[in-house]
Design a protein around this nucleic acid. Sequence first.
DNA 1: CGATTCCTTGAGACAGCTCAATTTCGGTGG
DNA 2: CCACCGAAATTGAGCTGTCTCAAGGAATCG
Lengths: 263, 263
Amino acid sequence: MPFDRRPSKAVSPPAPVPKLSKNVEVECSGCPIRHRAVCARCDADELARLEEIKYYRTYEAGQPIAWAGDEMGFVASVVRGVATISQTMADGRKQMVGLLLPSDFLGRPGRASTPYDVTAVSDVTLCCFRRRPFEGLMAATPHVAERLLDMSLDELDAAREWMLVLGRKTAREKIASLLTIVARREATVGLGAMTGRINIDLPLTREAMADYLGLTLETVSRQISALKAEGVLELGPQRRISVPDIRRLMAETGDDMDGGLIA
Amino acid sequence: MPFDRRPSKAVSPPAPVPKLSKNVEVECSGCPIRHRAVCARCDADELARLEEIKYYRTYEAGQPIAWAGDEMGFVASVVRGVATISQTMADGRKQMVGLLLPSDFLGRPGRASTPYDVTAVSDVTLCCFRRRPFEGLMAATPHVAERLLDMSLDELDAAREWMLVLGRKTAREKIASLLTIVARREATVGLGAMTGRINIDLPLTREAMADYLGLTLETVSRQISALKAEGVLELGPQRRISVPDIRRLMAETGDDMDGGLIA
DNA sequence: CGATTCCTTGAGACAGCTCAATTTCGGTGG
DNA sequence: CCACCGAAATTGAGCTGTCTCAAGGAATCG
């Protein structure tokens, strides 16, 4: 059953009716990404106005969220799940250019159509805001725009870090970098420090990793096998990866990891 | 001989006296990047406040503007010249992650130190704003922050386009992509349309291009020689490149260039 | 003009790609 | 619960685009 929106209020017909899913989380206050998403700095008043224009939408693993060139009537925060942002060339070569994890922002205010394919990798829940009202809200209240600027600059840094990975690192270093980055991100968000054993839950197929790293899936597989053979990582079922000693993995990234957050 | 500036106007003392260079351009109204830089949307009032905290600084070709890890007391707009943003790995591998052309913004409000090396490639003039006052101004007036968000999102798009280049394109396609991007940018800014013969003034050495493209300088040289041999481009003195037919070059980028701005 | 820096070109090596064959995994229905 | 199926992953063998190492040549600048 789709979440039901406030049942009162004779539904204003222009609103696009999303046809999805059972979850009915409406309270921002209880939202798992409340303090990390684009709404992080909103005060009660701003939150209330966001709440008015927000709705949830879910996608199953593997489903497209948008194709390049699509009109996107909304922008959104990822509440849970993982999605990828990718570009495809005419002959099929594909490159992932972003990974959307919970609290990440999707879409660009002021632009109607995405230039990227966006795909749900695991089951994904989005907290969507219709674009127009969101843009109005951005103009009216400073905190959303401020936060979005900060998040965008973080993304730009991430993209630049990734450019180094793509342009200059070996296959092995690329794999280690991907896993380290995801591990770091998971450590930051939730539980666990960047030390000792770490479990990485990265629901990407070998092919998806390859598209991320600018490699072929065979090369990804070979490198992972090699790292496993050397004991740097262990493979569980369900694409689960366990890293006995995160520092050994980080040592394989090629980065100067002195300036690390190592205990 | 460098441009000489209006010699008049007793300098207002509070401005930090840049110890550089003879040029003293003070009027925003006559600024060549007035309508494209971070100040583009400022009204007269906001501009006046910017004018109070701004000062010019110049760097000669080849000089470093900042090293990774440096404290940066200012943020800045590039007024003229070209600078590169790059990252270097411990073992010397280097990757450019950004190209700063006139009107581009340098630095991140809210952060004291750069994570990147920034280098002047040609003689560069920056319009600098001391960081603290600039941050204050951003909080106080909406137009600067708005414009900066837009510019950052454009940069993010550019970075993502670059990720495709780095991850999935062949050496030849990389060269063609770099030249096309610069040509497009030059066409947008100034003179010339994206059609017919185009002159590209890209003051990058082969090595710098290689660092940009994730290649070696030898491969860059070979590919450029090949394109020249095929008549796709002509090499002048001073690193000047002339493209007889821009569409032939664009056809080599691997992009689907249907959606082009081709006449 | 020398000296330096940048560019070009060649020849051989190698990392990662391509093509191809199994094997393992995860689900599904009998 | 097991047999089966398709998708994903692994592994092998040979190929190739780019890198590495090396030697000249062309600019540019005191």
